[in-house]
Simulated assay, not measured.
Amino acid sequence: MSWARTGLRWLLAVCYAAAGYFHIASPAAFLTIMPAWVPAPEAVVFWTGVAELLGAAALAQPLSQPLRKAGAIGLALYAICVFPANIHHFALDMARPDGGAGLGYHLPRMVAQPLIVWLALWTGGVTDWPLRRR
């Protein structure tokens, strides 16, 4: 099981690093899905990119378990915090005459969000649930 945890931890770190890069380098796409009630949307997109990069770097730590756990908790909290933007994007897209990206894109994304929270915590060594040996 440790090889799966390590491999998925590295995969998650790479995905978050890429997302962080794109939040900073190409913020326009992220700004379009930002709910109107979020203050300073440009700053929020920039700092979410920074948070993703820092979380990815912490998650990728092979020897510093406390730093890796802190990064995992941070990325899990981050995934929870951005969920309203995902719901907003879903609603905006589905209201478009052409249906936007459609249910085939948005429903798996909604279902994946809790899985990403768990995956960050599991790969970061914060939890063993539900895979702990009895």
Rank of each mutant, 00 (worst) to 15 (best):
L107V: 12
A101H: 09
V117Y: 03
D98C: 01
W3N: 13
A40W: 11
I33A: 08
P97K: 02
T32C: 02
L12E: 07
A4I: 14
A57W: 10
F46G: 00
G71H: 01
L31W: 05
A85I: 00
T48C: 03
L67A: 07
T48W: 11
R9S: 01
G71C: 03
Q61W: 03
R96A: 12
R5F: 04
R68V: 03
L63G: 15
P35K: 02
K69G: 01
L59D: 04
V111K: 11
Y21R: 15
R5M: 01
V38M: 11
D93I: 06
L31F: 02
A60T: 05
A13V: 08
P39M: 14
R5E: 00
A101R: 12
Y105W: 14
T6A: 10
G102K: 08
G49R: 10
F83V: 08
A18H: 13
M110K: 09
G100A: 05
V14D: 04
E52R: 10
P108Y: 10
A101M: 14
L8P: 00
A91I: 13
Q113L: 13
P41D: 01
P39N: 03
A28Q: 14
G55C: 05
F30G: 05
A72M: 09
L53D: 00
P84T: 06
V45M: 01
Y21I: 13
A51I: 10
E42L: 08
P84W: 05
E42Q: 09
L63W: 15
